[in-house]
Simulated assay, not measured.
Amino acid sequence: MRTNLFKSLLLGLALSLIGCASSTPGALNLSQDYYDYIQPTFTQYLEVTREWLAENRAYISQEHEKELEMNMPFELFPEHETNKAVLLVHGLGDSPYSFSDIAPSLQQQGFYVQTLLLPGHGSKPSDLMMPTYSDWQVIADHYANLLKQDYDEVWLGGFSTGGNLVTIHAIEKQNINGLLLFSPSFQSKTPYLEKLAPLASLFFDGYTTQEDNFARYNSAPLNGAIAYTASAEKLRELLEDTRVEVPTLIVLSEADSIIDPNAVHHYYQHQFTHPSNQLLWYGESNLEQGAVTASSMKINALRISTASHMSSLFASTNTYYGQSATYRMCMNSMDSDAVAYCKQGGEVWWSAWGYEEEGKVHARLTWNPYYPALEKAMRDVTRAQ
Rank of each mutant, 00 (worst) to 15 (best):
I139F: 04
S231A: 10
K234L: 14
H90A: 05
A363L: 01
A384Q: 11
S134N: 13
R216V: 02
E67N: 05
N4F: 12
P125W: 04
G12R: 13
S351N: 04
L13K: 12
E358M: 08
P104K: 04
A197S: 15
L9I: 00
Q108P: 02
A21S: 12
E356C: 03
P184A: 02
T43K: 13
D380Y: 09
S22N: 09
W349E: 03
N4P: 14
Y355I: 07
L196Y: 05
S219Y: 01
K234V: 08
H121M: 03
Q39T: 05
T132W: 05
T43A: 11
K84L: 12
T115C: 08
K376P: 02
I168K: 11
G19K: 12
P184M: 06
I176H: 12
H142P: 04
Y321F: 08
A363C: 04
Q271A: 14
D127F: 15
L5T: 15
F74S: 06
S185A: 15
W155Q: 07
E69P: 09
Q271D: 13
T319I: 08
A227S: 08
G206P: 03
W155F: 13
C20D: 15
I250H: 03
P247G: 13
F182T: 07
G359K: 08
L238D: 08
N223H: 01
Q39K: 13
L30Y: 13
H169I: 07
M310E: 09
F159S: 00
A103E: 00
F77T: 10
A291F: 11
R379W: 10
A373K: 14
T293A: 09
S23M: 15
Y35G: 03
G12D: 14
A225L: 06
H362D: 00
E63Q: 07
A307Y: 07
Y217M: 09
V246S: 01
E375Y: 12
D150K: 10
T317F: 02
